[in-house]
Amino acid sequence: MNKSGFWDYNFRVRSFDVDQKKKMTLTSISEYLQEVAGDHANTMGFGYRQVILEQMVWVLNGIKIEIERLPIWEEEIHVKTWVVENNRFLSRRDFQWFDQKGNVILNASTNWVLFHTEKRRPQLVDSMNFSVKMHPEAKATSSEITNIREKFEGIEASEYKVRYSDLDMVGHMNNTKYIQVLLDHYSPEFHNNHKVKSLEINFKNEARYGDILELRKNMVDLNSDLIELKRKIDDKVNCLAKMKWI
């Protein structure tokens, strides 16, 4: 068992991880972040396999990804992750991705909530007494995940209906699927002429099979957008996102 608190993971970018430009998609990046976090947590004794025995699961509350460059098809990538700190109901976990020359190509930060599946409410993270060395001095991203605030009244919405393939082990729409919906809102022409520089998301309320989500986008400037996904039936916000392009 690794007692340093850092966890290392290596992988090769696969053909189904990339887009038509042979660059890794944000959806695939988020899937690897989720998988690596789970591997580390399970190995250290506080992952899904362990907490589900206490009727709890880890739920992603927020994510920030800052990109220096996107990995390309067949590239070998080294990932390092660690728990930064626990703060009552939130556990912060950060990541760095390296190429074969040791250059940092991506930084990410995530906030996780320990959610009780029967009580349907968050639990104090410290109540589980996890034995993992934390590194509050090591923060990967340039700033912490912010609380995104924006009004979207009067903006025309597009709709997305949650599908069976969007659901995860908990039975709600997986966080990686939200990212896919956000990216699909942009045209192929836009993607061909722009690259994502950073993505930040606040996850607010879960979405389940059959829910109709309304997507509204507010342009902040030529290179930045704020996006809202809201459940149509009750106006509950599912997520708020900030995307920066170059």
Rank of each mutant, 00 (worst) to 15 (best):
I148D: 05
N174Q: 09
N107S: 15
T81P: 03
V84Y: 00
Y209Q: 10
F89I: 07
E31P: 09
W82T: 01
F16K: 13
K204S: 12
S4H: 06
V51H: 01
D166F: 02
Q180L: 11
Q55G: 13
V125I: 07
H40Q: 13
D94N: 10
N2V: 14
Y178H: 14
G45W: 03
E85S: 01
V125S: 00
Q34S: 15
T141K: 06
E68L: 09
D99V: 05
M243E: 12
D99A: 07
D19N: 13
H78K: 12
V237Y: 03
A157Q: 08
L226H: 12
Y178F: 12
R49D: 14
E76G: 06
F130W: 13
Y9D: 07
N174H: 08
D19A: 01
G38N: 08
T27D: 13
E214F: 10
F190R: 02
N2G: 09
E35Y: 11
M24S: 07
N193K: 08
L240V: 01
S109R: 06
N107L: 14
L222C: 11
N107V: 14
N86M: 03
M243Y: 10
I155E: 06
K64Q: 13
Y164I: 10
W73F: 15
P122D: 01
K217W: 06
D225H: 11
I212G: 08
G5P: 03
W245N: 02
V237I: 13
L229K: 05
A37H: 03
F89C: 04
V59M: 11
K197V: 14
